[in-house]
Design a binder for these strands. Sequence first.
DNA 1: ATGTTTAGTCAACCACGGTTGACTCCAGGC
DNA 2: GCCTGGAGTCAACCGTGGTTGACTAAACAT
Lengths: 193, 193
Amino acid sequence: MQAKGKKTPAKQRILAAAVRRFSMASYDDTHLRDIAADAGVDVAYVHRSFGSKEKLFLAVLSEMSQGHGVADGSLAEIAALFARQVFDDSIRHSESDPEPLMILIRSLSLPAAAGPVGSHLDDLFIEPLRKKLGDKTGLRASMVMAMLIGLRMMRSFLKLPAVSNANPEQAAETIRQALEKIMDLNGAKDETL
Amino acid sequence: MQAKGKKTPAKQRILAAAVRRFSMASYDDTHLRDIAADAGVDVAYVHRSFGSKEKLFLAVLSEMSQGHGVADGSLAEIAALFARQVFDDSIRHSESDPEPLMILIRSLSLPAAAGPVGSHLDDLFIEPLRKKLGDKTGLRASMVMAMLIGLRMMRSFLKLPAVSNANPEQAAETIRQALEKIMDLNGAKDETL
DNA sequence: ATGTTTAGTCAACCACGGTTGACTCCAGGC
DNA sequence: GCCTGGAGTCAACCGTGGTTGACTAAACAT
């Protein structure tokens, strides 16, 4: 597709193509042949260099989670950032759209991915956020992420008008307020397990 | 599987089996042959009676949304009910588990389902909830559902410990509080579009 | 030069699963 | 009795797509 940027090594090009493809369609609808074509390589080679389709997907998964952890900053800042992310289509990439949250949602097709995805989500978002919120607040941290993911899903997949057509600025503000409320709910004892 | 309950008409048995199968695995991982076996029918017949796999899935979709709308009652009651639903595995069905929210999440594999699912979600939950909340509050209604779906996903698919291992009663209480906060956020002007 | 690994290609395989068409079986109407 | 039509079956088809093994070409040491 992109005239084979023959400079970068093939394995790297394959991974890049896979990231893009996997974030645009579900696991089953993403075909190795397309990825191969994008990378300017034969199908057999993408298979050979990653072992299997599933392995490749897992590789994509950890690739995507690089540098996507919860930001440093105050809770208020995080809330604001997250709120904006729901409407931000160009996170990190300019053209097509590997949107990190997408691939998470896509991965629900593949049972084998649940484990890794869960761990990533936990390590990169829930846990850091929990640390900021204080002890025993894993549930609240999860609620924040849940709302984020849910909204993203409603906007980008289901295209619910209430979310899709909302004015981004005002919507982000409303969401930000909600996130803040969730973060400092009075009852501190979330998970007594 | 269940010794062919030959009393009910086949088409109905097929639909029931399909509901169960589709809510347990993704669209692609659900096979007509399995559904047929469950219903005690030949594969060809399930195809014949619903036109295609996709049509069958759509049928399942509207079947599932029957009687699953937002409950009547005060906002507080709704919040409490929703909060509990995150941890309730036996909504409506005793044995296996057709959990309605599941199929919604599953349907993300199938692009063609996005439309119908979105509409159902909108008609059955968002819109009624919005009406209760007042005008121009579609976003807040969506946030409520987003959090619900997101939490469910984290618990049942990703198995995040913070959600999966939480004490159901206390967790539900925390979630309930969060939902209430979201519902009566002060800034009433959500979506000025 | 020559043998050996590394990067990559080509064609074929083969399983899976949705779909199809021809067939059978049984009611019910005439 | 006959025959028309729906319910349901059987076997086969066939596209798709991941996987595999044999092959080629360049890099690279000995």
